[in-house]
Design a protein around this nucleic acid. Structure first.
Length: 967
RNA sequence: GGGCGGUUAGCUCAGUUGGUUAGAGCGCCUGCCUUACAAGCAGGAUGUCGGGGGUUCGAGUCCCUCACUGCCCA
C-alpha cells in the first residue's frame, strides 16, 4: 500500500493523528530497567510541573520543546530515555480559582462550605478540568511516559510529604515561631519572600508631630504608612543623630491615642542604628507587628508588638474609632484627624516601593503571626559530622550548606551539579549566601496539611504520622490538628525522589535505583529559587538515607536530584516585551500552533533558543519554518514520484536503513552522492556536538542548512541527471531500454537507492525537532518502497544518525565544493550578461589540470545547474567583462550581448577596493618581524597564501576594468 | 544602592580557547509560473561589531572607562 501525499503540507491533517498514536501505542513508556540494564544508560528528566489550573504558555512550550528534543535524541541514541510528566496542585492558585467558581455559581464562600466540602470540591474540579494542560502537552507531541504521571496531591505524595516533615521536625530543622511574615490579605495567608514582588507607586511621606509626654517639646517623624501608628510602641532615632540625643529615653504621647476620656498612650524614644538620619526627619515610628524592620527593632529593645489589623487587613481595635476600617480607608481618616488635631506637619510626594503578592496582586501587609519554618542554616540534630560552623555561622550539614556544596561554580569546582549557562551558578550561590529560614506554612485549605496536633491543655505540639490519641506531654486528649497546610513548593521540592517511589522509609526502590539522580533539569530562571534550589536542599538532605544500589552510603554526588540544570530563556513578544496579561501581548501557543503547525513552532523556538538570550518570538520566523516543513514535504513528494517511475521501469527500490550501503559506496557512485553522504556524516557530528552543549539553535540551523541548502538545492537537482529511467528516455521508441547503457542503468538504480537512504536518514536527523512531519513522511516512505513493514513503530524508536554511519570522502566533498563554486560563478555571470534564463551558453575555463578535468568530467552537471552549453579549457586566463576570477579558476561565459558597463565598472571597482584593503592589512602584518616571529606557522602561511591569491584576484579585476569600454 | 547580563546588517540573533577578507534567518532589490515545492528557484545590496582608551605581532573576542539597556536582590 502506498501513501498518497497531498500536494501541500497541511500540519492539521497529520499532527493530531500522530499525537494520538504515540499516546495510545504507549511508545514512550519506560519499564524500569533492572540488572545490567540498570547500570546507567539512562537519561531521565522530570517535567517542571505546571499548575494544574494552568494553560499552556510560550514558556511551557519552549521548555517542553527543549526537553522533548533532548528526550527524543537520547532515546534515538539508544539510551533508556525517560521523561516524567506531572502537575502541581498549586495551593493558592487552585484555591482561588475554586473560590471564584463558588462565588460565580452559588454565591457561597469557602467558609460557608466548610473545609471538608471545599476540599472535595477542589478535587472534583481537578478531576473534571485538571487535565487541560496535559492535554495540551499531548498535542505538542511531548514524548513523556504517561504511565508515570504524577500529581503533587497524590496519596503517595501525601505520605512522602508527611515523612519528610516529621524527619525534618525531629532533626530540629522545622520549628514554629512568631515572626513577621508577608501576609496576603486577599487570600489571607502568609506567603514566602519569593512570592512577593515589589512595585513602585506614587505615594506620600507624612510628617507627623509626636509630643513629649512631659510637654517640653516634640519630635516629628516621617512615615509612608500613618495608619500603622495605632500599633506604634516606640520612636527610633539614630544614636549618632545629635538633633535627637536629648530625646532618647524620654516618652512621647502617641497622637490620636487619647480616646473616650482615656489619656494618650506613651511610647519611648529609642536610639537604634536602623534609623537613617538622611531619610525623612531622621526619626521613625516603630510598629513591630506590621513592619519587618520595626519587628527587628522591637526584638532588640524588647518592645511589645500589638497586632492592629485582622486577617483581611482591617483595623482590629474594638476601642478605636477606626475599628473595622480597611487599612487604606483608615489611612485617609487618620491623616484627616491628624491634620484636624494639628499633628500633621507636612505631606510630601514620595515614590514608595510596595510589596505586592505575586498570586493575587494585593498589597502585602507585613504581619506578626505564628508560622512554621524550615531552618536552612542550622545543623540538624544527630548529624554525623562534628559541627564546625563556617564564618557565616552556617552548620556544615545544614540544608543550605549541602546545597551550596552541591552546585559547581568557579569557587566550587567539585560540585556535582552543573549549571548551563554557568553564570546562573553565581546567582544561585549569591542567593544561597543570603538565604534565611523558609516559611513553609500557608493559611490555606488546599494543600498538604501539616501533621501536627496542638494540645488544648498544655499547648504542646505533637508532630505525628497519625492523629495521636493523647498529648505526649501531658496526656490530655484535647487535641486539635494544625489547620495550616504546607507551601506548594515543599511537596514539589520532593518530586525528584517521590516520582520514583520514595516514601521516607529509606528504602531503595527499583525506580530510585535506576533513575535517581536524574540527569537533567530544564527550566526557566523564574523558578531557580522557588523550586530548583529547594529540590537541591531537600534532595541532598533527605536522600542521604537511601543506599546506593550496591548498598553503600550515598555521597553528596549521589544525593543530588539532578546532575545538570539547563536554564532557558524567557520568551518575549516580537518587540522584546515581556508577555503579560495586563499588557495584553500574550501569545497563545495553541493559536500559533493551529496556524503554523506544531513542528514549525517547535523548530522556531529551538532555532532561537540560544543560551542566555531571551527569545523574541517571531511569527515571521515561524512562517519561514513552516515553509521549511513544506519544502521537506515536497522533497518527499519528489522522492515518491521517482520511486514510482523506478517501479514502472522495473526497479526494486530498497530502503537500506543504516546498513553498509551508506558506508561502502560502490565504485561507480557519482560524485554528488559521495558528497551528500559525507555531508550527512558531518552534519550528524555537528548536531551531536550542538545538542550536547544545549545549543538547540546551532543544531536546528545545521539541519535546516543541510536539508534545504544542500539536500534540496543541490542533491535533488543533481540526481535528476542520474535518474534516467528507460521509459523516460524515449517514450515512443520501441528500443528505449536497449538505448541506455547498462552502466547508466546501474547509476540510476544506485542513485535511487542513495536518494531514499539519504532522505530517510535526514528525516531521522530532523525527527526530534519536527516529530510529526518526520513521522508522517517516514511511514509514507516505507509504504512506497518495497512492501516490507517499517523497522519500528515510529521513527522516534529508530537510531539517530551518527557521523560513523556515513562514508566520509574528503576528496569528493572538495571536488563538489569546487563545482558548486563554478556553478554559482557562472550563474552570476550569466545574470550580469543578461543571458536569458533558458538559453544555454558555452563557458571557458582556465585552471590547474585537476580542476579543469573536473569541470570537463562534470559538464552534464554544469549544463543542468548553470545552463552551460559546453566547457572549453583554455590555457590563458579569460579577462574582460564576461569573465570572473576566483581562487580556484578563471571562468568566462561566451555570450555576445553587451553588458551594463557602468554596473560592471562599479562592481569591479568595489572588488578592487576590497582586495586592496585586504592586501594592505595582510602586507602590514607580513612585514612585521614580530608577527613572523611570534605568530604560529599555519597562520603565517595561511596569510601568505591568501595575500598572493588576493593580489592575483586584484590584478585580474584591474585587467577586467581596463578592458571595459570607456563610458 | 548591590549583583549579573546585553549593545554585531532594516529586524531577530549566531560568532567556540584572540588568528587569514564578520555570518544566518526574516525583510529588501532584480529576474524567473525551470513538472517536488511561487510556502518556490536564481542572482544581488546592506555592518567605522555602542563610544573612548589599553594589552597584543594580531581584538567583534581580553582589560579599563563612559553611555544606553534588561534582569535579579535590597
Amino acid at each position: 500500500m502506498t501513501t498518497e501525499l497531498p500536494k501541500a503540507y497541511d500540519p492539521a491533517l497529520i499532527e493530531e493523528k500522530w499525537a494520538r498514536y504515540w499516546v495510545e501505542q504507549r511508545l514512550f513508556d519506560v519499564a524500569t530497567p533492572t540488572g545490567e540494564a540498570a547500570a546507567r544508560n539512562t537519561f531521565t528528566q522530570l517535567l517542571p510541573p505546571p499548575n494544574v489550573t494552568g494553560r499552556l504558555h510560550m514558556g511551557h512550550m519552549l521548555n517542553q520543546t527543549e526537553m522533548d528534543i533532548l528526550t527524543r535524541w537520547h532515546r534515538m541514541m539508544g539510551e533508556t530515555s525517560l521523561w516524567v510528566p506531572g502537575t502541581d496542585h498549586a495551593g493558592i492558585a487552585t484555591q482561588m480559582m475554586v473560590e471564584r467558581l463558588l462565588a460565580a455559581e452559588g454565591k457561597t464562600t469557602r467558609r460557608e462550605l466548610g473545609r471538608e466540602a471545599f476540599i472535595t470540591r477542589v478535587k472534583q474540579w481537578k478531576e473534571e478540568y485538571g487535565g487541560a494542560i496535559t492535554e495540551q502537552m499531548r498535542r505538542l507531541g511531548a514524548s513523556v511516559d504517561w504511565s508515570r504521571e504524577y500529581y503533587t496531591m497524590d496519596e503517595n505524595l501525601n505520605v512522602a510529604v508527611r515523612e519528610a516533615f516529621i524527619r525534618l521536625y525531629e532533626q530540629g530543622l522545622i520549628y514554629r515561631g512568631a515572626y513577621i511574615v508577608n501576609w496576603d490579605p486577599q487570600i489571607q495567608t502568609a506567603v514566602s519572600d519569593l512570592e512577593v514582588e515589589s512595585e513602585e507607586r506614587a505615594g506620600h511621606l507624612f510628617h507627623v508631630r509626636y509630643d513629649l509626654a512631659d510637654g517640653t517639646g516634640s519630635i516629628t517623624i516621617a512615615t509612608t504608612r500613618p495608619e500603622t501608628m495605632l500599633g506604634d510602641t516606640a520612636v527610633a532615632v539614630n544614636p549618632t543623630d545629635e538633633r535627637y540625643t536629648a530625646f532618647v529615653g524620654k516618652s512621647l504621647t502617641l497622637p490620636l491615642s487619647a480616646t473616650g476620656g482615656k489619656p494618650g498612650r506613651e511610647i519611648p524614644v529609642l536610639a537604634d542604628d536602623w534609623a537613617n538620619p538622611e531619610f525623612g526627619t531622621g526619626a521613625v515610628k516603630v510598629t513591630p507587628a506590621h513592619d519587618p524592620n520595626d519587628f527587628a527593632i522591637g526584638k532588640r529593645h524588647g518592645l511589645p508588638a500589638p497586632l492592629i489589623m485582622d486577617a483581611e487587613a482591617r483595623i482590629d481595635l474594638p476601642d478605636s474609632p477606626y475599628h473595622g476600617l480597611d487599612r487604606f480607608e483608615a489611612r485617609q481618616r487618620i491623616v484627616a484627624d491628624l491634620d484636624a488635631a494639628g499633628y500633621l506637619v507636612k505631606v510630601e510626594d514620595h515614590t514608595l516601593t510596595l510589596p505586592i503578592s505575586q498570586r493575587t496582586g494585593a498589597v502585602i501587609e507585613p504581619r506578626l503571626s505564628l508560622q512554621w519554618f524550615l531552618a536552612v542554616n542550622k545543623e540538624p540534630a544527630g548529624a554525623t559530622t562534628t559541627p564546625a560552623a563556617d564564618s557565616s555561622g552556617r552548620g556544615p550539614n545544614s540544608v543550605a550548606a549541602r546545597a551550596v556544596a552541591a552546585v559547581r561554580s568557579p569557587t566550587n569546582p567539585d560540585g556535582p551539579i552543573k549549571f548551563t549557562p554557568e553564570m546562573y551558578s553565581k546567582t544561585f550561590h549569591l542567593w544561597m549566601d543570603n538565604i534565611y529560614d523558609w516559611c513553609i506554612s500557608r493559611q490555606l485549605w488546599w494543600g498538604h496539611r501539616i501533621p501536627a496536633w496542638h494540645c488544648g491543655a498544655c499547648a504542646h505540639i505533637n508532630v505525628a504520622r497519625e492523629a495521636p490519641p493523647a498529648c505526649t506531654a501531658c496526656g490530655s486528649t484535647t487535641l486539635e490538628q494544625e489547620t495550616d497546610v504546607l507551601d506548594t513548593w515543599f511537596s514539589s521540592a520532593l518530586l525528584p525522589f517521590t516520582a520514583f517511589g520514595w516514601d521516607g522509609s529509606g528504602t531503595l526502590t527499583a525506580d530510585l535505583a535506576a533513575f535517581y539522580p536524574t540527569e537533567l533539569l530544564v527550566t526557566g530562571f523564574d523558578i531557580l529559587f522557588f523550586w530548583v534550589a529547594r529540590m537541591i536542599m531537600l534532595g541532598t538532605h533527605l536522600m542521604t538515607d537511601v543506599p546506593l544500589p550496591n548498598g553503600s552510603r550515598r555521597t553528596l554526588a549521589d544525593t543530588v536530584p539532578f546532575r545538570n540544570v539547563y536554564i532557558h530563556a524567557l520568551v518575549r513578544d516580537a518587540n522584546r516585551e515581556k508577555m503579560s496579561k495586563t499588557k495584553g501581548n500574550v501569545i497563545d501557543p495553541i493559536g500559533i500552533v493551529e496556524k503554523y503547525g506544531t513542528d514549525a513552532v517547535r523548530f522556531t523556538l529551538a532555532s532561537q533558543a540560544s543560551p542566555g538570550t531571551d527569545i523574541a518570538f517571531s511569527e515571521a520566523r515561524t512562517e519561514g519554518n513552516r515553509a521549511f516543513a513544506n519544502k521537506i514535504w515536497n522533497a518527499a513528494r519528489f522522492l515518491h514520484m521517482q520511486i514510482e517511475r523506478g517501479r514502472e521501469a522495473g526497479y526494486t527500490v530498497t530502503l537500506r536503513l543504516h546498513d553498509s550501503f551508506a558506508l561502502e559506496l560502490p565504485e561507480h557512485t557519482p560524485l554528488e552522492t559521495r558528497w551528500i553522504f559525507a555531508r550527512l556524516g558531518a552534519v550528524s557530528a555537528e548536531v551531536a556536538r550542538a545538542l550536547e552543549a544545549y545549543r538547540f539553535d546551532e543544531a536546528a540551523s545545521a539541519i535546516y542548512q543541510f536539508f534545504w541548502g544542500e539536500f534540496c538545492d543541490w542533491y535533488l537537482e543533481l540526481v535528476k541527471l542520474r535518474l534516467v529511467f528507460p521509459a523516460a528516455v524515449e517514450p515512443d521508441a520501441a528500443d528505449a531500454v536497449t538505448a541506455i547503457p547498462a552502466e547508466l542503468n546501474d547509476v540510476t538504480e544506485l542513485t535511487l537507492g542513495a536518494l531514499v537512504t539519504v532522505f530517510e536518514a535526514a528525516l531521522r536527523l530532523l525527527s526530534p525537532f519536527m516529530p510529526f512531519l518526520t513521522e508522517e513522511l517516514w511511514h509514507a516512505l516505507y509504504s512506497q518502497v518495497d512492501a516490507a513493514e517499517p523497522p519500528a513503530k515510529s521513527i522516534a524508536l529508530t537510531r539517530y544518525p551518527q557521523a560513523a554511519d556515513f562514508a566520509g570522502d574528503a576528496a569528493s566533498a572538495a571536488a563538489m565544493t569546487t563545482l558548486q563554486e563554478l556553478i554559482v560563478t557562472v550563474r552570476a555571470l550569466r545574470k550580469d550578461l543578461a543571458v536569458p534564463e533558458k538559453e544555454p551558453a558555452p563557458i571557458q575555463i582556465a585552471a590547474v589540470p585537476a580542476i579543469a578535468a573536473l569541470a570537463l568530467a562534470n559538464a552534464d552537471m554544469l549544463a543542468r545547474m548553470a545552463r552551460v552549453a559546453s566547457v572549453e579549457v583554455v590555457p590563458q586566463t579569460p579577462t574582460g567583462a564576461n569573465a570572473r576570477a576566483t581562487g580556484s579558476f578563471d571562468v568566462a561565459v561566451v555570450y555576445e550581448r553587451q553588458i551594463d558597463v557602468a554596473a560592471e565598472r562599479e562592481r569591479l571597482e568595489k572588488d578592487i577596493a576590497k582586495f586592496t584593503k585586504g592586501l594592505l592589512a595582510a602586507e602590514k602584518q607580513l612585514g612585521s618581524e614580530s608577527f613572523l616571529a611570534k605568530a604560529p606557522a599555519h597562520i603565517v602561511d595561511g596569510l601568505k597564501k591568501q595575500s598572493e591569491e588576493t593580489r592575483s584576484l586584484r590584478e585580474k579585476a584591474e585587467a577586467a576594468l581596463a578592458s571595459l569600454p570607456v563610458a
